[in-house]
Design a protein around this nucleic acid. Structure first.
Lengths: 209, 209
DNA sequence: TAGATTGTTAATCGATTAACAATC
DNA sequence: TAGATTGTTAATCGATTAACAATC
């Protein structure tokens, strides 16, 4: 199978969201043209994207919504269960922990670690926040493959070698530490909120120049 | 001037971050080759990107770091001050409010609104959280141009028309409500955390297939 | 000057869009 | 069957990469 481009992959969650909505509003089939309208895309792109993974449609009819949704979920691997730990129970960490339904996104959050003593022992999403110093022990005893990093850059820096050496290769990284550069075989998904805000700033200024 | 592509724009904050680091570690000049190495990019791309905005370099020498950094800051418009309000003081809203240094990102956060009565009256980053019902009045009395939306989709939906009708055109949107589709002249920067996590899930599964 | 490195044009590569035969 | 719409190939468009003359 030919490699799927990152552009296509990044569109998949969007298809998944819109199809979920369509399904729950009782729509049972949709054409590439209609789906493209809803998603501000093009019929060509929809068909090209979907055909990267197989022929889900039917000529003269369109795509069955429920089947297409579940197929995309399967392609994304949302039925898998990767075991993740969260590092950092500050504002951002708490938001992530409480805000997302990991179970339907392919993950299981099993532990939360924090340096600040005031936060250790508190509960988040049914998980007791543990001390930073327990990380190594926890990973050794449990099968963890993913780390969610909601710590500042200078806290990630001294931690990342330990995580890597303990076998963690997947990172959801909210910090500005460049993990991918240091460990080229790691899978790193970065969320840089300030970058996003700067982009907004640029676009506002261009419009109002 | 020819339109700058969105790919280039999205790379600008990254240049800005790396240049800020270089500057604070006392580096005063850098070649496109070296900068590309640090950023896991290519020398060609660096030069092409920068030359969208002007010739900041010097042949045989490279780019002056401090000057290039401040130029990119100016291009991004970080010296501007857009006035923003935050809607939603839940976990995510609180994280956003406390986590980011808006002043150095081109924005000023002046008010926070929330539906939940338990949160109204609490302080965040020196701002007293106000009741949802005060939004309209506040916007009429103050010059607000941007809204940060850290509310769920079904709370954004009934609110967005009011915001738009009161003149707000710029949105930093963490919800799944599709603002751009409804108001095509709005500038919408979306942050979809669950999309990002699904992309990570896909990439892990492809690697470990 | 000689070496280094930019700015910029040209070549390549890949993604998006268009077109249409296949077929339900 | 006729109409609709897919799957897929071809055309276009744009972004990235390479090359090199200009020049500090």
């Amino acid at each position: 199978m030919k490699e799927i481009s990152i552009q296509v992959i990044k569109r998949l969650p969007r298809y998944y969201r819109f199809l979920t909505e369509l399904e729950s509003s009782g729509v049972d089939k949709i054409s590439s043209t209609k789906l493209a309208q809803i998603m501000s895309s093009t019929a060509s792109q929809v068909r090209q994207d979907l055909n990267c993974f197989g022929g889900f449609g039917q000529q003269g009819y369109g795509y069955p919504v429920a089947m297409l949704r579940s197929e995309i979920g399967r392609i994304l691997g949302l039925d898998h269960t990767h075991t993740a730990i969260l590092l950092g129970a500050g504002n951002l960490g708490r938001a992530i922990a409480t805000h997302l339904n990991f179970e339907s996104l392919g993950f299981r959050l099993t532990a939360i670690f924090e340096k600040d003593k005031k936060l250790i022992g508190t509960m988040l999403r049914g998980i007791t926040v543990m001390a930073d110093s327990d990380i190594e022990d926890y990973i050794r005893r449990n099968n963890v493959d993913t780390a969610f990093l909601t710590l500042p850059k200078n806290s990630v820096e001294p931690l990342i070698d330990k995580l890597y050496s303990l076998g963690i290769r997947n990172f959801w990284n909210f910090s500005h530490f460049d993990i991918a550069r240091k460990y080229s075989d790691a899978i790193v998904e970065n969320v840089h909120l300030s970058d996003s805000l700067m982009t907004l700033c640029y676009r506002i200024n261009v419009k109002n120049n």
